[in-house]
Nucleic acid binder design. Structure first.
Lengths: 339, 339
DNA sequence: AACCATCATGCAAACGGTTGCGCAAAATTA
DNA sequence: TAATTTTGCGCAACCGTTTGCATGATGGTT
C-alpha cells in the first residue's frame, strides 16, 4: 500500500499549487490564505504526511542530535546519567546518539571522529580512564560545536563541565559520624591522582577542623579500589594505633569489600559510610549507615540542559567565548532508614 | 579559523575542476585519472574534508541510524543490552538513537512516532510493561522499516524477535538442585500473565519429570515481585506441609527479599537459585548458590545484528515477507565459585 | 585521412524542504 | 476611475553529494 512516505511535492501536485505554498501553509506562514491552509493541512493529514527530518536537518545544517560518549553503560552511575540525559533531550526535542568508550582511549578518539562525521550539534563526554591526550576534543571547539564534560573532567582549561562536588557530601558524612559520637574516623580513599579523591579528603579535613578536632593524615589510606587493595587498606586501618570506629569508603564496592573483610576477621561495630553508586546496596545484610548521593540522573539532566543551551546560544554573543559553564551538583548525605 | 566544514564544492573551485570529478575522485571511481585523484585527495586531506553525512543520508534516503526503545536504562538488564547493541552498531557503522519508555505505554507511542520522524532505518524495541495495544508498530511495517523485538515480546504474530528461553536454564537449575540431593524444591514465580513465568514453570516441570519425580504444583507460588509479595510467597512455602530445602526465585530481587526473610525468621540451610540481573549479587553475604544467566549483552548484540541484516536485505526477496527471525538465546546455569 | 574506441571530465538533475523576491489580483484609498 | 496598498501565491535558488549521460581529447585501427 503506502510505500514511500508522502512528500510535499505530491501534495502540491494533487492540489495543483506550488510546493512553496504547501510548505508555507504547513508552517502557518502569514502570507497564505486561510482556505488554502485548510485544504493543504487536510490533505496532508489524510496522506499521513510527515516532514523528512533528514532534508530539513540538511538544509539547516542542524541535526538536532547530541552525541553522548560514556565509558560504560553497564555501570549504574552512567546508566542513571544517560537516563537523565535522554529525558532532557526528549523534552527539548533532541535525540541522543549514544556510544561507549569502554574506557579505551583509542576507541574514544574514534567515537569523537564518528560523532563529528554525523554532524552532531553538541557533544557530552565522560572521558575514559585511559585518556591522557585531549586534542580530539579541540577539533570540536574549532568547528564551534559545544562540548560539555560530565563527571570525569579532563584536566584542561576553558571547558564546560558538570560534576558533583564530593567535598560537601564528605563534610556532611564526617560531621554526621562525629555527631554520632565517633572520634576516630578512617577513610579508604581512591588513588591520589583522581580529583574525586582530593575532594573527599578535603571534605574530611574540613569537617574535622570545623569540629575543632585534630586531623590525622594517617587515618586516610589510598587504595586502587580493587578487592585486594581494599583489604590491604582495611588492614592498615585495623592495625592503626588508634583503631577507627567508623570508616568512610571511596565507593560502594570498596565498602562491600571492607565490610566483608571486617566480618571475616571477626570484627564488629564499625560504622561505614559510602558513596552511592549501587542501587542494590540498601537491600544488603550489612550496609553503610549512610551514603553520599551524587545524583547521576540529575547531573545528566543538568549537563544535557547546558549543552542544548550552548547549542542554541546566539553566535557572537559578546564575551561568550570566555564564559564557561562549570556547574557543580552538590552531593548529599542520605542516612539509611533502618539505622 | 576554520569555521564551517569543508565542502566538495570548495575543493572543486580551488582545483578548478567540477564537483562531480571531485566526488568521483574521492570515491575512487574508475573513470577518473590517477593524477586528478591524487590531487583531489591531497587537497581534501589538507582541508580536513569530511563528507556531510546528512546530505548523503538525505540523498540515499537512508540514515544509518537504528532506533532503540527500552523501558529503563537504569535496569542492569537493559543497560547491558544497550551496551551490546551499541557495540554491534558501532562495528557495522550504524549509530544508535536511544530512548526510554519508562514503562509508560503513552510515552512509548510518542517515541515510536519520533523514531519514525527521524527516519530511522530500523527499530529495536523492548515493549513497556503497560503496553497493551500494538498498532503503533504496524506503521513501521507499512513503511517497510524492520522492527525487531527484544526480551519483552508483544503477543502478536509475524514479528521478528530475540529473547532468551528460560525453560532450559530453569531445567538445568532444578536438575542441579536435584543432583545436589534436594527432593523438595520450591519456586517463587512471577505473575502468570508473563511468558517468562510460564517458561520457568515449564523448565521446572520438565526437570522433575525427567528425573522421575512427581510434580507438585503447590510448590510453585506466584508473586507480584514486590518485597511484601515475596515475603507472602515465602511464608506459603515455609508453611507448606513439605517444606522446600531449595527454592528457585524469579529474579535476584526476589531472591534477596526471600533470603532476608528466611534469615529474619531464623531459618537456615535453604539453597537458593535465581536469575542473574544484578551484577552485585555475587558480592553479597548470602547469595544464591547458582544463577540462570540470560546474557543480555549477547541478546542485545544478536538483536542488533538481525535488525541490521534486515535493513540491508534486498527488497522483494522472494518470500521474505513471510520469513521471521525468532531467535532464542539459550539461558545457562552459572554455579557460584565459592559454594 | 576517416573512423571508432577509450579515457577523463563536466553538465545537470535529483533528494525534500525553506525562503527571498516578484508579480498579479483584490481591496482600499484618494 | 485611477492610483496605491494589501493579500495570496509562484518562481527559483539553495543546502552537499551522487550519478546518468554527454562531450572532448587522445590514440589506434583500417
Amino acid at each position: 500500500m503506502s510505500d514511500k512516505p508522502t512528500t510535499i511535492k505530491e501534495i502540491a501536485k494533487l492540489l495543483k499549487i506550488s510546493v512553496s505554498t504547501v510548505s508555507r501553509a504547513l508552517n502557518d506562514h502569514p502570507s497564505i490564505g486561510l482556505t488554502t491552509k485548510i485544504r493543504v493541512k487536510k490533505l496532508a493529514s489524510e496522506l499521513n504526511y510527515e516532514p523528512n527530518q533528514k532534508a530539513i536537518q540538511f538544509l539547516h545544517g542542524k541535526s538536532f542530535v547530541i552525541g553522548v560518549i560514556l565509558p560504560e553503560l553497564s555501570e549504574s552511575f552512567f546508566s542513571a546519567a544517560i537516563s537523565g540525559i535522554e529525558d532532557v533531550a526528549y523534552k527539548r526535542n533532541y535525540t541522543v546518539l549514544l556510544a561507549q568508550s569502554h574506557d579505551d582511549a583509542e576507541r574514544e578518539k574514534l567515537l569523537v571522529e564518528k560523532m563529528k562525521m554525523q554532524r552532531v550539534d553538541g557533544l557530552l563526554v565522560s572521558v575514559s580512564k585511559t585518556t591522557s591526550t585531549y586534542e580530539h576534543f579541540e577539533i570540536f571547539k574549532k568547528l564551534n560545536i559545544p562540548v560539555v564534560f560530565f563527571d570525569r573532567i579532563p584536566p584542561i582549561k576553558n571547558i564546560h563541565y558538570v560534576a558533583s562536588n564530593l567535598e560537601s557530601g564528605t563534610y556532611d558524612a564526617v560531621s554526621f559520624l562525629l555527631k554520632k559520637g565517633h572520634r576516630v574516623i578512617g577513610m579508604i580513599n581512591g588513588p591520589n591522582t583522581l580529583v574525586a579523591s582530593n575532594e573527599r579528603k578535603e571534605g574530611y579535613v574540613k569537617a574535622m577542623i570545623s569540629n575543632r578536632l585534630k586531623f590525622d593524615p594517617s587515618l586516610i589510606v589510598s587504595c586502587d579500589l580493587s578487592e585486594s587493595g581494599t583489604i590491604e587498606a582495611m588492614d592498615t586501618l585495623i592495625n592503626h594505633r588508634r583503631k577507627p570506629t567508623a570508616i568512610v569508603t571511596f565507593n560502594d564496592y570498596v565498602a562491600l569489600f571492607a565490610m566483608r573483610h571486617t566480618k571475616s576477621v571477626g570484627l564488629n561495630g564499625i560504622d561505614f559510610v559510602s558513596y552511592a553508586n549501587l542501587p542494590i546496596i540498601k537491600y544488603m545484610d550489612y550496609s553503610p549507615i549512610a551514603s553520599v548521593e551524587q545524583f547521576p540522573h540529575k547531573q545528566g539532566k543538568k549537563a544535557a540542559d547546558i549543552l542544548i543551551d550552548l547549542i542554541n546560544r546566539p553566535k557572537n554573543e559578546l564575551g561568550a567565548e570566555h564564559a564557561y559553564f562549570n556547574v557543580v551538583v552538590a552531593s548529599e548525605l542520605i542516612i539509611s532508614d533502618s539505622k
